[in-house]
Design a protein around this nucleic acid. Structure first.
Length: 283
DNA sequence: CGCCCTGTTGGGGA
DNA sequence: ATCCCCAACAGGGC
């Protein structure tokens, strides 16, 4: 569930509840959550601090705490933050007591999610700078940026889009949607994309992410079934995660590939396969 | 019922 | 730079 639009939705819904709250008590039941640091260290860092602002960078939620403290929460595939759940939810891994009879529970069936604590914003930014590139919904996300980032890269376009150091927050499903919308085959080497293709890719990424955010609490699975309200977007979306399903644009059966180690769905009519090139390249 | 495969993520080693 | 495997579990197909 968590790609950029979903994480941004979580941030928006949680911010008013969390900002200003004090972390009266923090209990980390899953030692994995704070790896490589031991949970005790992270708990000690969080205890008694107030949440001043809830931000986001790529798929990381940023808890800006009092006295400069910073907590980066990553939901990975199945993590979720539940505000005042009724009873004890399954797969609860971390409990935050917010005082005032409010609480926040981090649940995660697969336990891939992480929480990293940093003493100050500078340390946090050093961590992020190493793994997160340009935010796709900002003015910095230009065709020129994409061109520079893709130049000379032999990795497939799909892997390029998925690489968080290039574009922050685009996950597997949105990557397929954007490539389909841009008419780019996921296997085409990133460095061989034309200027026109890079332009279409930039715009397509923006469109699918905004559509996801506008779908509010819905997951991408939900907005695939949206009615007239979102019909203008719906027609552009690939029918996903189902080989043989007709492409909504042209009716060609969707084919499944594995690219960058991820299941990848493609319409090979809308997204023509790259022509094989002779080995040995440069003269 | 059991086995096998798949998966919305990122990190580390080859 | 790139590729492959891994983490740990749920759910679906057979």
């Amino acid at each position: 569930m968590p790609e950029l639009p979903e994480v941004e939705t979580v941030r928006r819904q949680l911010a008013p509840r969390l900002e200003g709250a004090e972390l009266r008590d923090v209990r980390i039941h899953d030692p994995r959550w704070t790896r490589p640091q031991p949970p005790g260290v992270v708990e000690a860092g969080l205890l008694g601090r107030r949440v001043e602002r809830l931000g986001r960078r790529g798929k990381y939620l940023i808890w800006e705490l009092s006295d400069e403290g910073q907590l980066l929460v990553h939901l990975r595939m199945t993590g979720a933050l539940l505000y005042d759940p009724v009873g004890e939810p399954p797969h609860a891994r971390v409990h935050f007591d917010l005082g005032d009879r409010h609480r926040l529970v981090y649940v995660d069936a697969r336990r891939f999610g992480t929480g990293h604590f940093f003493e100050d914003p500078a340390a946090r930014d050093r961590y992020l700078a190493q793994r997160i590139g340009v935010e796709p919904l900002t003015p910095e996300f230009t065709v020129e940026y994409l061109r520079r980032a893709a130049r000379g890269r032999r990795a497939p376009a799909k892997a390029f889009v998925l690489d968080q150091r290039n574009i922050a927050g685009v996950g597997n499903i949105y990557a397929d949607e954007a490539l389909h919308r841009a008419g780019i085959h996921p296997l085409r080497p990133a460095g061989r994309l034309t200027g026109a293709q890079l332009g279409r890719l930039r715009d397509a990424i923006e469109v699918v992410l905004l559509a996801g955010i506008d779908a509010k609490g819905a997951t991408i699975d939900d907005f695939r079934h949206l009615d007239g309200t979102w019909g203008s977007f719906q027609d552009q979306f690939l029918v996903h995660r189902r080989q043989g399903e007709p492409c909504p644009t042209c009716g060609t059966p969707v084919r499944k590939l594995v690219v960058g180690g991820r299941g990848t769905y493609v319409c090979e009519r809308c997204q023509p396969r790259p022509r094989a090139r002779r080995a040995g390249g440069r003269a």
